[in-house]
Simulated assay, not measured.
Amino acid sequence: MAIKPKILIVEDEISIARGLTDLFIFHGFDVVCEQDGQQGLTTALSNKFDCILLDVMLPSMDGFSVCNAIRTASREQPIVMLTAKSSEEDIINGLTLGADDYIAKPFSVQELVLRVKTILRRTGWHQDKDRLNLGDDITIDSENLTGTVRGEENIFTRREIDILTYLHQHKRPVPRTELLTNVWGYAKPSLIDTRTVDIHIAKLRKKIEVNCKNPQLLVTFRGEGYKLIV
């Protein structure tokens, strides 16, 4: 019997929780569902999940706090935040705390399943090499999600390493939509209103640049995209 991917859904609205549970069971997932933030965190930390769907508004402990606690315990655990459609602040907070992706309510169930499957599929470019060298003074261990930046140890998320690896492999400015397609797996990135790429690039610059306000390694080419200069 094939092993099913295991997903944890933390959602307090009963109708949504039931709908998501049925949806992912239909698509071949082993589903665990919690409706309380604290209980969701306990379940997340005491089991192994291939992905966690995490609502922002939860009783006893909000989704941001849950995300932060999960990310503190595991840098590699895939987390997708479910946010209010109009709340850009929620999106920024979730991504800053380490969520891999977000999807706004009300959402397309087809898009949600696609986004989760894309995360699980992990297109594989980060597996080509365990070590990524960005010049003489930056070395990143893509397996252990750590790096040495000018002699100092730093921690990276899987998504950050995916971005760096993709940019490193493509010796040209890479458009934002291309990153959304090939790193995040969005089917129609031009139709998506998201600051996902911007936020991750800003986080990476803080980690690898001498001066993140005047980047020399991860450079923006206006009208063309981002290029890694090493």
Rank of each mutant, 00 (worst) to 15 (best):
G185I: 00
D137M: 07
Y186F: 07
F64M: 06
I16L: 02
C51L: 13
V219T: 07
V10H: 02
G37C: 11
L54R: 01
R205I: 14
I155D: 12
R122E: 06
Q110Y: 05
Q169Y: 11
T181C: 01
K207C: 11
I199Q: 02
D55T: 05
D90N: 11
M1T: 06
K171T: 10
R158V: 12
L180R: 10
R75D: 14
L228N: 04
A73V: 11
F107H: 08
S15M: 03
R71H: 11
D50S: 08
S65K: 09
G94E: 11
N144T: 14
I25Y: 01
I91E: 13
Y166G: 00
N144A: 15
R115T: 00
S46C: 08
L120G: 05
A99M: 07
E178I: 04
Q169K: 15
L114G: 06
A44F: 03
V219E: 04
G28I: 04
T148P: 00
K206A: 10
T96F: 04
N133Q: 11
S15H: 08
F49G: 04
V230M: 05
L95E: 04
T123N: 09
H126Q: 13
T148Y: 03
T146I: 15
R172L: 06
S190Y: 12
R150T: 05
F26V: 09
S60P: 04
V66N: 13
Q39S: 11
N182H: 13
L217M: 15
Q110I: 13
E76T: 14
L145R: 02
D36K: 03
K171E: 15
R195C: 02
I14Q: 13
V116M: 01
R159W: 00
A69H: 12
A99L: 10
K6M: 01
R121T: 14
E143W: 08
V80P: 01
P5K: 06
L132W: 14
I138N: 06
V183A: 05
D141W: 03
V210Y: 02
E34D: 03
W125G: 02
S190F: 02
D55F: 01
I138S: 07
E224P: 00
I155R: 05
V210Q: 13
T194Y: 12
I192P: 02
S108C: 13
A202N: 07
V80H: 00
Y166K: 02
V32M: 09
R75P: 04
I16Y: 04
E13S: 03
V197Y: 04
H170R: 12
C33T: 15
D162A: 14
I229L: 13
Q110W: 06
E88Q: 10
F24Q: 07
G40W: 03
P59Y: 06
A84I: 14
S190C: 10
P106F: 07
N211C: 05
R158I: 12
D193V: 10
A2V: 09
P106N: 11
